[in-house]
Design a binder for these strands. Structure first.
Length: 813
RNA sequence: GCGAGAAUGGCGUAAUGGUAGCCGCGUUAGACUCAAAAUCUAAUGGUAGUGAUACUGUGAGGGUUCGAGUCCCUCUUCUCGCACCA
């Protein structure tokens, strides 16, 4: 402890006190509103967006700093490039952790949230982020969630919000219904409890009707392959056909979905999901109904996790007394109930073609069902032949001899002609389960009237305000605490005036974040969610950075809302984001994911207190490639502190009156300007910083440097380490560096007029020499073979000499 | 199982098909100091050698090329995403 104090003292004597200087400039920036975004400014606009944080009690995390730092650097650079920058911040403050904390402590979520937002805001300012703090939004503020309710109401009007009775993912610990997105892998997103299937009344948003648009919009999104592919997989489009199978002895039929209609002649049985309505409908005709009921019950008991575990072990029950008719050849096929067919995908029923589908193959083997080979080329005695590129149709009457591709077209034509099938597209994505039985969320503006049924609240009556309550515990039925509050639930029907009941479920946390980027353009508007003109000016978001984990949830949800609002004529652009990047995780020093329980959490504010905000910002971007997960190294950060000390020490060498580049540094400065700028644009912050270090090392080796040399370095540094840049800039300037013109490079000064030629023999480096640029190839060869170190290797004759201009000579012997 | 990505010193990482290891950390030696820290200087992939230097080296094995960390094929391991999706 004593030693540490001495270190700080020594540093203070030699160089600036970072924390003091940082505080000074933060006060200057924020009190003068240096980062204010100006509506309708004639400058070109730039909208940089980061995912707004959840204001947890733990405060800011180093992960937040990394997530925000990329757009922070870009925003500061854009301001210097003459843009009118919108770089906003807000808080996604509804949600379970706050509510759970309220249950534990009895403190109201409103008070917890306010306190956490205050702390978080202070921490953001301590790091010096250049947000426009005049546009802060809070999703739990009545003036904000009024518009979240408004959008829900719009969705309802269009039939895109509906109530349905289905099996849902339910977390027994959190006592909430979860969406597929929140229960990936069969466990609850928040608490890792195994999700169970529960029969419930649920609000859904019909995101599936936007599946095609959501897929389409990805085409123009500037993003990594990974982010695109993840969204595509999530939407999960597949092309195929609906085919009707009639039920033997009835006038009824059921429809299957298949991507392989070409194999229809090879179908030897059909399978329906345990939840398929056919079962109860033909209760009386199914001879083994009790066995089927039993199977159905067991299937529902299985958790998602168990289903995955038992993936290979197929189970099922044959429906006795009920057969399906293959529409193409009139053959009677047995119907099985099996849980490897899901009610939630396609039609919940399949035509099974064991010869050409792996799952059907396993099932057929287990239940001793026949197979018919209809695509030649494989060996179906060993395994299902699923190749769709090779192979020819056989045993399929009019399809025989065709390729899979052609057979698909022809069979669909035939089915359509006969009126028993059609081309179809199916999506993996399901409708979005949109309610939670909790208090701390946006109320759903719906009323249940005994006469009129479901009635939406009139627009003029919005918002439904969350009442201030004292007991936040959900009740025993897993209902929201609002359900036990008479003052809230009792109301009158807006249509007929009779006594009615208010919806007590609230919206999921993803609601508020589905449109927040719109609100930033006009955060204080109390007439509309944002003015059309302002949205037209600011949108679309030019660059959006956020977590990889939000690619399949938040990104898709928010694009859905935007596309919907666009169709309603309420927003000016169909796609909200032009470009999307994602940062990697920062792991603990032990290489594990940071967590309280592992005790490996690094608090960014501790780093600010020890090294300063500039060092924190610099290190977080220098640590590795921006997209890569990397462990924190408590020693490596010292290198960043040393670097900034060096930058400061350079001031002693500056010739104040020299306003051009010093000749010996001209090339490296121009090169650095070019490369740092390009690196920032392609999210290579780590190499950008490495190049700034190289430049600083070069300037340190110079006898003296010019004012322009130094100011150029400071400008290039400003996006990364604005405090020290501002402080040193003021040695020579009175105005802020934040709007100083970003340096430009001179293409003619990027290369020196001499170059180093490497000489290798058979690809092995042997020597090098320096010569003028673009020297004639013949002369280069002459010099190369005359070198003493090269001579011994070419004694036995030369086969060939390859010269790569200004780079390398390779002598082949 | 399917899809995407990755594998380079003691560590984090860097290299338009053209000097592998930039930049940073760490380590070693030296300077300053009574001493330590900080700072500065030098060295630092491995093996051999006092040394110039030589050989070797980017997960493994093949290939293309004058030349491969980079391109192609096969394999191994790891990370991420999806997962009985019909």
């Amino acid at each position: 402890m004593k030693g540490k104090k001495i270190i700080i003292k020594t540093r203070r004597k030699k160089i600036m006190n970072r924390q003091e200087v940082e505080k000074k400039w933060q006060d200057y920036w924020y009190s003068n509103k240096i980062f204010k975004a100006i509506d309708f400014s004639p400058k070109p606009k730039y909208y940089a967006l980061i995912e707004f944080p959840y204001p947890s009690g733990a405060g800011m995390h180093v992960g937040h700093v990394r997530a925000f730092s990329s757009m922070e650097v870009v925003s500061r650079k854009r301001r210097m490039e003459g843009y009118n920058v919108l770089f906003p911040i807000g808080f996604d403050a509804f949600g379970l952790p706050t509510e759970n904390y309220a249950i534990k402590t009895g403190i109201h979520p409103r008070d917890i949230t306010d306190k956490n937002i205050k702390t978080f805001t202070e921490q953001l300012k301590q790091v010096g982020f250049s947000f426009d703090f005049d546009r802060v939004i809070d999703t739990t503020d009545e003036s904000y969630y009024k518009w979240t309710e408004f959008i829900f109401r719009k969705l309802y009007d269009k039939g895109l919000a509906y109530r349905s009775h289905t099996y849902v993912n339910y977390c027994p610990t959190c006592k909430v219904v979860l969406s597929n997105e929140e229960s990936q892998g069969g466990v609850c997103d928040r608490c890792n409890t195994q999700v169970i299937q529960k029969d419930k009344d649920v609000w859904f948003l019909k995101i599936t009707s936007y599946a095609e648009d959501l897929l389409d919009g990805l085409k123009d999104l500037d993003t990594s392959q990974r982010i695109k592919v993840e969204q595509e997989n999530w939407i999960g489009r597949s092309e195929g056909a609906f085919i009707d199978f009639s039920l033997d002895g009835t006038d009824d039929k059921f429809t299957v979905f298949t991507t392989r209609p070409d194999t229809l002649f090879g179908s030897t049985f059909t399978v329906i999901a345990p939840e398929h309505p056919l079962i109860s409908k033909y209760k009386d005709r199914i001879l083994n109904y009790s066995e089927v009921e039993e199977y159905k019950k067991n299937a529902n008991l299985k958790t998602e996790f168990e289903r995955v575990q038992l993936q290979k072990d197929k189970t099922g029950v044959k429906l006795l007394g009920l057969n399906a008719i293959n529409p193409i050849n009139g053959k009677a096929l047995p119907i099985y109930v099996a849980d490897y067919v899901m009610m939630g995908y396609g039609t919940g029923a399949i035509m099974a073609v064991p010869a050409h589908d792996t799952r059907d193959y396993e099932f057929a083997k287990k239940f001793n069902i026949d197979m018919i080979e209809v695509i030649s080329g494989g060996d179906i005695s060993k395994e299902a032949y699923t190749d769709i590129y090779n192979g020819t149709l056989v045993n399929s009457e009019f399809l025989n001899g065709l390729s899979v591709k052609d057979a698909k077209v022809k069979i669909i034509e035939e089915l359509e002609k006969r009126g028993v099938g059609s081309r179809a597209v199916s999506y993996k994505m399901k409708d979005w389960a949109f309610n939670r039985q909790r208090y701390w969320g946006e109320p759903i503006p719906i009323i249940y009237c005994p006469n009129c049924g479901i009635v939406p609240l009139p627009y003029d009556d919005l918002p439904v305000v969350l009442p201030k309550i004292k007991n936040f515990e959900p009740n025993k039925d897993g209902e929201s605490p609002l359900a036990s509050l008479k003052e809230f639930t009792e109301c009158s029907c807006p249509k007929c005036g009779s006594k009615a009941r208010r919806e007590t479920d609230t919206m999921p946390q993803w609601a508020g974040s589905s449109w927040y980027y719109l609100r930033y353009t006009d955060p204080n508007n109390d007439k509309e969610f944002a003015s059309y003109d302002k949205m037209k000016y600011w949108l679309p978001v030019d660059w959006y950075n956020g977590g990889m984990e939000h690619v399949t949830r938040h990104l898709i949800y928010s694009r859905f809302w935007n596309e919907f609002l666009y169709d309603e004529g309420l927003v000016p652009y169909k796609e909200p984001y032009k470009k999307r990047t994602a940062q990697g995780l920062i792991l603990g020093p032990d290489g594990e994911k940071m967590s309280k329980s592992k005790g490996n959490v690094i608090d960014p504010i501790d780093v600010v207190n020890e090294y300063g905000a500039d060092v924190l910002r610099l290190y977080i971007l220098f640590i590795s490639d921006y997209e890569m997960a990397t462990p924190w190294n408590k020693d490596a950060i010292k290198g960043c502190a040393r670097f900034l000390d060096k930058v400061e020490a350079l001031k002693e060498k500056v010739n104040k009156d020299q306003m051009d580049y010093t000749p010996q540094n001209k090339v490296i400065i121009n090169k650095t300007i070019k490369e740092v700028s390009e690196d920032i644009e392609s999210s290579k912050y780590n190499t950008a910083i490495a190049k700034l270090m190289i430049l600083t090392n070069a300037l340190t080796e110079s006898e003296s440097i010019s004012r322009l040399d130094y100011e150029t370095l400071l400008k290039l540094l400003n996006p990364f380490t604005p405090h020290i840049a501002e402080e040193l800039w003021h040695l020579y300037n009175n105005d802020t560096i934040q709007y100083a013109e970003y340096p430009k490079y001179d293409p003619n000064s990027l290369i020196s007029n001499t170059c180093t030629m490497v000489v290798s023999v058979n690809g092995k480096r042997r020597d090098e020499f320096t010569c003028e640029r673009d020297l004639d190839d013949e002369k280069v060869k002459e010099i190369a073979i005359s070198l003493d170190k090269v001579k011994p290797y070419i004694e036995n004759g030369i086969k060939k000499i390859i010269v790569v201009k200004n780079k390398i000579v390779n002598i082949v012997v």
